[in-house]
Amino acid sequence: MELTLHVSLGEGSCAKQPMSRKRSYSVLPGFGLTMGYTLTYLSLIVLIPLAALIVRAASMSLEQFWAAAFNPRVMASYRITFGTSLVAALVNSVFGFIVAWSLVRYRFVGRKLLDALIDLPFAIPTAVSGIALTAIYDRNGILGHTLFQWGIKSALSPLGICIALTFISLPFVVRTLQPALEEMDGESEEAAMCLGASRWETFRRVIFPALFPSLLTGFALAFARSLGEYGSVVFISGNLPMKTEITSLLIITKFEQHDHLGATAIAIVMLVASFAILMSINGLQWYLAKKFRG
């Protein structure tokens, strides 16, 4: 016989147990080098500096931390920051939805240009947006002037902060919704219509629930970004303590007064808030992926 064959009937067993590896074998080279570099660089640039913040915070006593992170002026800044961020994220959820819907589902002249413009807040430096928005909305600005005549103060007020944050966080909602809208197949809504649902019913029961996770993600991303925004807000807000002072600015103020501990405490609170938001997005996506993909 030209071919030797060995078929064992019982369960064959290997004399030596297979080694458990941290990674499975690959013929491609360079894992050690690139992984080593990645971890080293990540540690130097991101992890060690972040650890410095945490270690500094840990050196405070609980009372110290409490006094620094939750005194009235800081609490006022939280209220303003979280409040205006929430308003901006809500405004963008409504208008961002309409913008994304129009860009994906309708064809009109200038659509491509409009689509490209959505990323402007990413491309324009925040300080530049800040002075531009101030020029528009202060008492002599083209919109601010009209608003002022109606008795509405836009610059140097929480409204101004809301406007700046709406500008800065719009792309998050639109860019999260767009792929979800594009992926939606027309068939399920056609099916709903065939089953006798009205247009509005179809939107409410079929389309909107399918888009809701993306909308929520976009909302959360916009909210998280707004919480930390600095450049576009400081020019328009007027920075009055207790009234229009955002938390990012307060951190800088503390730091400039050489109150590093105060700044550290506030920074920790803000970091925890934004991590919590981003983790809940991840959790939401993980949950939905599990629920719908089995």
Partner: peptide, 8 residues
């Protein structure tokens, strides 16, 4: 699982 084979 314990595979052996010869190819000429």
């Amino acid at each position: 699982q314990d595979v052996s084979l010869k190819v000429n």
